[in-house]
Design a protein around this nucleic acid. Sequence first.
DNA 1: CTCATTGCCGAACTGTGTACGGCGATCTTA
DNA 2: TAAGATCGCCGTACACAGTTCGGCAATGAG
Lengths: 158, 158
Amino acid sequence: MRLSQQMEYGMDDIDRRLIAELQRDASASYATLAAAVGLSTASAHDRVRKLKERGIIRRTTVEVDPAALGRGVLSYVLIDANAWMGDASTGDALAALPEVEEAHIIAGAGTLLVKVRTATTQDLQGVLRRLYEVPGVASTQSIVVLETFFERPVSPTA
Amino acid sequence: MRLSQQMEYGMDDIDRRLIAELQRDASASYATLAAAVGLSTASAHDRVRKLKERGIIRRTTVEVDPAALGRGVLSYVLIDANAWMGDASTGDALAALPEVEEAHIIAGAGTLLVKVRTATTQDLQGVLRRLYEVPGVASTQSIVVLETFFERPVSPTA
DNA sequence: CTCATTGCCGAACTGTGTACGGCGATCTTA
DNA sequence: TAAGATCGCCGTACACAGTTCGGCAATGAG
């Protein structure tokens, strides 16, 4: 076992560059992908296959313009609870709301933090009403995003 | 011009189902993709190509396990400003920090909201120190995520 | 020193992406 | 109402890319 920077995932620098390329354009051919990292097509294919097998690459997906889907307004909602909300049932109840994109349990003042995308601020109002129907929700505090500088994938570079 | 639910993007139900399938697995073949929505291979190919041309599908990418990249700790940082931070230079300065995944200008109490991924909470400390070097940053308030219920793509369904 | 393991490569095969032409329906316009 | 244009859908064919296979060299273990 050799020394590792944080934990042993068996990732070397070529793997990180492969991930960076795939994050940029997962539709690129294995030939161009291999050329970008200085490997043969077969080797690049091997490495990407292993990254998927190990669960490091979870899936290949598409990034969509939220406004085109009627989700042009981004908000974050802090939730205070009057009961324990750490069980899976809470996650299921939040996942049932299609406008909720992320749901986290947090440390500090509040209890929950959810990321919400709606068409309008009126629709955010509707989501808040449905949030109050989730067991344990005592109060909410909404943060509406006026402008987004950037949203990008996890950086593979240290 | 027919009536639309929110704004005219020329999206019909088949387009939304195609997007949902691609979000689930963008590596699927056009044959299986077409079968999932009840179309021929050529038609599915046509629709996806147009969705990309119109910018509705921005890119195909991969979802990566953040922990494997040394980004196992997720935090949100609220920033209060003592100067105007709405210019692009602020966005550039934040984008220079690889741990910052999102940066937004928000309404309400604070001024900025950034999403940060680090290996440890000590590393979050380091990011905060560098955040204070960004012009305009007066104070910060960190929200550390203890557990994530889910993170998922934008829902194409109404 | 020998063996096992690992990562890399070239080449062949198979499947898929991609482009093309034609068909029918819908909407426009005269 | 009739004629034309536009749009979406489809089947087909070809070239390209994904995928697999066997072999080679380097590394590490026994």
